[in-house]
Design a protein around this nucleic acid. Structure first.
Lengths: 145, 145
DNA sequence: AACCTTATTGCAAATCGTTTGCGTTTGGCA
DNA sequence: TGCCAAACGCAAACGATTTGCAATAAGGTT
């Protein structure tokens, strides 16, 4: 009955024009269960524990990105991360992330005010689709960097 | 006499505690000549034209980063980019970049006002060292994306 | 100016994250 | 139920980056 119900997930996938395979359903379930972007490796590891090949994990994530169910992000540490696009309105609006360069933790900063107006005034920029901040998180500060 | 004078570069390298080898001097000269971050491959290609190995290019860039002469950035396309730290004050202040996900061009947005205050108020963040924007540049918009 | 120590280099092989070729399996519409 | 393209598993290919090792060279010392 929940939105993460297997049949619901199956429907989401089918509506996007993809076949609802077990690996894809598992992938979406995993993505529904986290609150920050996960890496290719995270998903591949999870799926391989269920008997799926990691190439399948990679391919499915990319497919889900292509059809717009999932968003792919690069946070500066050379690995792709994935998160559900979700039902935001509009669905693809800029979504800032913060990556701690020390511990690798990622935070979603959906509520932070963006300097949208000033960005629009920059000559080179037509449209900003993503904003990423990097630095040190408080936890790592406490551990004495 | 210029700051990019070979002897000046040699001195900069020596002051940082590294040996002033021809490859390093060439690397710094190249970095002085550009106004946006260049990739490992850019530098490696330039140096290999001068008879240096690409492993040398990679190692030198990383060394220059370690000693603080060069800054390493990741703009979301899975390649490291490098730029001089320069004589800013303070030398490592957040330095926003814009990457066009279509054509790959990079712009430095050193003058754009940052929401510094609001960032500091985010719980997870202790210090922001880098800001990156991605999207489409005007040039690519004109070419009809 | 020759000398010694150790950082740096060249080359090739290794590694990491990711993608792809190909023959086999499977989802889902007819 | 049967068909066919989509998706799979496997293993090999890939591009960016790093590393091991023996040879070379920077720069302080004599």
């Amino acid at each position: 009955m929940a939105l993460t119900d297997k049949n619901q997930l199956r429907q989401t996938i089918r509506n996007a024009g993809l076949r609802a395979t077990p690996a894809r359903i598992e992938t979406l379930e995993l993505l529904h269960g986290v609150k920050y972007p996960v890496t290719h490796a995270d998903v591949a590891h999870h799926l391989s524990g269920l008997g799926f090949d990691q190439a399948t994990a990679y391919r499915n994530l990319n497919d889900l990105v292509v059809v717009g169910i999932v968003r792919r992000t690069e946070l500066g540490d050379h690995v792709w991360r994935f998160e559900l696009v979700g039902n935001e309105d509009p669905p693809h609006h800029p979504h800032p992330h913060f990556l701690c360069v020390d511990c690798g933790d990622v935070s979603c900063l959906s509520e932070i005010p963006l300097p949208k107006a000033s960005l629009d005034s920059i000559d080179q920029i037509h449209e900003v689709t993503e904003i990423l901040l990097r630095g040190y998180c408080r936890k790592c500060k406490l551990n004495g960097i």
